[in-house]
């Protein structure tokens, strides 16, 4: 057994460690990871300000900039859209596009998943949907960066979702009533401690899954595209160019679908969990 020879394991691990240090994956990671500057090479690089507050590094990063870009795009678009509704109830131009999405979120996500009382959570669901959708799409434009491929961003969004779920459930059922409702009816007393742990774990796995799903989906596509294009440089041949380009293009088209799909799934699951917290009898 290999475990009998600690020296061998140590050597292997050492070699592997050296290998990981030598292996240059920065050309993929540079694209995916957050950064402290906006890289518009070959036109130039904009360095972002470094900020510190109470000893915490709150520097503006690339992903923060793209979140703000999404914010500006959404605010400007919806000021325009809201104004167009004031003029006439008939949608025209970009209002058609946003209306399809708004009605989709309302009729296909909020109403079936939450049911009665979905109007209270509709602003949150709409904001989450449009924010994630815009961030996803911003990663698909040249020089763009996907803020939703940052685990910090998705985890924060999932945490906000978690708070909305819990607060929504507590506001409907009362704090004590909500925690009572978490445990299913009619289980034997001796199962109670186990069920309590399971249900409490369940509460936290839901947002965790939300965060990981969005992060993984948005990161994976970009890494695959970069890897496919990277084949050209790894193999040092032009032969793979058509293959790389066509495969990368295919993945890119898939990314458009994934961008829409992940915004939908995040919103839909948030709605589903809110519905479960609000209507505990089901």
């Amino acid at each position: 057994m290999w475990i009998d020879n600690p020296k061998m394991i140590t050597d292997t691990v050492k070699t592997a460690l050296e290998a990981t240090k030598k292996q240059d994956t920065s050309w993929i990671m540079h694209h995916v990871l957050d950064a402290r500057e906006l890289d518009f090479s070959p036109f130039g690089v904009i360095h972002l300000p470094q900020l510190h507050l109470f000893g915490i590094d709150i520097s503006i990063t690339k992903h923060v900039v793209f979140m703000w870009l999404a914010l500006v795009i959404l605010v400007v678009t919806f000021i325009f859209v809201a104004r167009s509704y004031r003029k006439s109830l008939i949608p025209r131009g970009i209002t058609n596009l946003t209306e399809v999405l708004i009605v989709f979120v309302r009729d296909e996500i909020a109403r079936p998943t939450i049911g009665k009382g979905n109007e209270r959570f509709l602003p949150y669901l709409l904001t989450a949907f449009f924010f994630i959708l815009t961030c996803n799409f911003l990663g698909l434009i040249p020089y763009g960066s996907t803020a939703t491929s940052n685990i910090a961003v998705t985890a924060t969004l999932a945490t906000i979702s978690f708070i909305v779920i819990q607060v929504g459930g507590m506001m409907k059922n009362g704090v004590i009533g909500y925690f009572k409702g978490l445990i299913p009816h009619g289980i034997p007393m001796w199962l109670l401690p186990i069920m309590l742990v399971v249900e409490l774990l369940g509460l936290f796995t839901k947002p965790f899954a939300l965060a990981i799903r969005l992060f993984a989906n948005m990161t994976a596509g970009h890494i695959v595209i970069m890897a496919l294009l990277g084949l050209i440089f790894i193999l040092h041949t032009y032969v793979v160019v058509p293959v790389s380009i066509s495969f990368a293009l295919f993945i890119f088209l898939l990314e458009i679908l994934v961008a829409l799909l992940q915004a939908y799934i995040f919103t839909m699951l948030s709605g589903l969990f809110i519905g479960m917290a609000v209507h505990q009898e089901h």
Partner: peptide, 14 residues
Amino acid sequence: GSPLDVNPGVILWT
């Protein structure tokens, strides 16, 4: 830097 690094600043800004 790894994709799993969590930057507290980004959390705040998000």
